[in-house]
């Protein structure tokens, strides 16, 4: 009796277990469906129509909005600017973040916590506030940066730091680096502190110290952390909106336009919702691709 009842009980347990998993997953799936999957489906659907935010009628245009986007100069400027921000942020944020982390991990003994806090501090300020702070600093009429530049005998840009289309995207990149380098530093520092110190001691016996130890021991040891940092920076670079919106609004004359601000401009200022949806889908595909890469790499890590 007991022999025959055991398998039944096991299968019963399995069913109950499955039911429990399903019950536990359902709320999350429902929330995802309501807040992610359905909106995404609506955006994809909307990208096939020509309509405004207040339009009564939607006109089906098929892939017309995508064709228009790929033929639109500003779309390519926005994509190029996103790439500049991504690559520039990897160099500045992850690069400087790694250097600062290495210095704080091994080079600085006194006031390490204080320095870490100071470098990390901009990260906890909202991007809107950061934008406003830098607007004051960079103001061509009363901003302190111009005064400093003039004070050392140099000439500040005549059109202003954020008004000159040839430099404004690089200035915004610098502001983003100021805000996020501290975060990268903390992330990498955590990785550095997990590297066993005896490896350095053993390497020192073999003559690997200083830069050689950093190159051959530190960097390979934090490889996975660096990959995650690069992916976070890349995804952030494509999603950037608030900082640009506050500092330049995508100007002067689209020179700092990124996909996020261009979507906003098309949707809410110009009223081309279908076109904005099509650009959103392109951005979504980029983000999904990068997300997949991040997932794959973090699993490896």
């Amino acid at each position: 009796m007991s022999q025959t009842s055991r398998p039944r009980s096991r299968s019963g347990n399995l069913a109950a277990e499955k039911l429990t998993y399903a019950a536990m997953l359902t709320p999350a799936l429902l929330l995802l469906a309501v807040f992610v999957f359905i909106p995404v489906a609506l955006v994809i659907y909307g990208s096939l129509f020509d309509f405004g935010l207040t339009s009564r009628d939607w006109t089906f245009v098929g892939l017309g909005n995508y064709v228009e986007a790929f033929g639109d100069d500003v779309f390519w400027i926005a994509l190029r600017n996103n790439l500049i921000i991504v690559i520039g942020s990897i160099v500045l944020q992850v690069g400087f973040g790694t250097l600062l982390a290495a210095v704080l991990d091994r080079g600085v003994r006194l006031g390490r916590t204080l320095m870490r806090t100071i470098i990390f501090a901009p990260m906890v300020i909202s991007s809107v506030a950061v934008g406003l702070i830098w607007l004051i600093i960079l103001d061509p009429n009363v901003g302190p940066l111009n005064a400093v530049v003039k004070g050392v005998g140099l000439t500040p840009p005549k059109l202003g730091w954020l008004g000159d289309p040839s430099i404004s995207i690089w200035v915004v990149l610098g502001i983003a680096a100021w805000q996020y380098t501290g975060f990268m530093m903390v992330l990498i520092l955590a990785g550095l502190q997990a590297v066993p110190k005896d490896i350095y001691q053993a390497a020192a016996l073999d003559g690997a110290t200083g830069l050689r130890a950093f190159w051959y021991i530190t960097l390979p040891s934090i490889r996975n952390i660096l990959i995650v940092a690069i992916l976070i920076t890349t995804v952030g670079g494509f999603k950037v909106f608030d900082l640009i919106f506050v500092t330049t609004g995508g100007g002067p004359a689209n020179s700092t336009q990124v996909l996020g601000t261009y979507i906003y401009l098309q949707a809410f200022n110009i009223g081309e919702m279908g076109f904005a949806n099509a650009i959103s889908v392109v951005l979504l595909l980029i983000a999904v691709g990068l997300g997949w890469l991040q997932l794959k790499t973090s699993r490896k890590a």
Binding site: N141, L159, G160, P252
Partner: peptide, 12 residues
């Protein structure tokens, strides 16, 4: 006008 009108806010 001043040198950098495109980088100057109306409020200023």
């Amino acid at each position: 006008f001043q040198d950098a009108p495109n980088a100057t806010s109306p409020e200023l």
